[in-house]
């Protein structure tokens, strides 16, 4: 009987060791995913700032006027070509 108990305890120890390693590995994988998410969010904040400024600059009257004239010219050119 006592050998059986000893064996069971040994099996339990092995199972605990394997379980612990598995949990630690799971934690490591989760940390890696969290780290990647953290980086991804930070990276997108950086991108967001850049795009925000670019868009804000594109929305000043001078830029909008330039953009509008470019569209008008393109449209005029298109109509001219369609007439020819």
């Amino acid at each position: 009987m006592r050998w059986l108990l000893a064996g069971l305890l040994f099996a339990l120890a092995v199972a605990l060791a394997i379980g612990t390693v598995a949990i630690r590995a799971g934690n490591a994988a989760l940390r890696f995913r969290v780290e990647n998410s953290y980086h991804a969010i930070q990276d997108r904040i950086v991108e967001l700032r850049r795009l925000s400024l670019e868009q804000a600059q594109a929305a000043v009257p001078e830029s909008l006027a330039r953009s509008m004239w470019a569209h008008v010219r393109a449209e005029a050119q298109r109509r001219l070509e369609s007439l020819q």
Binding site: H39, D43, R44, V46, E47, R49, R50
Partner: peptide
Amino acid sequence: VDSLAVIEALR
């Protein structure tokens, strides 16, 4: 470096 495409490529 501020372009997401560049950042992701470097990562």
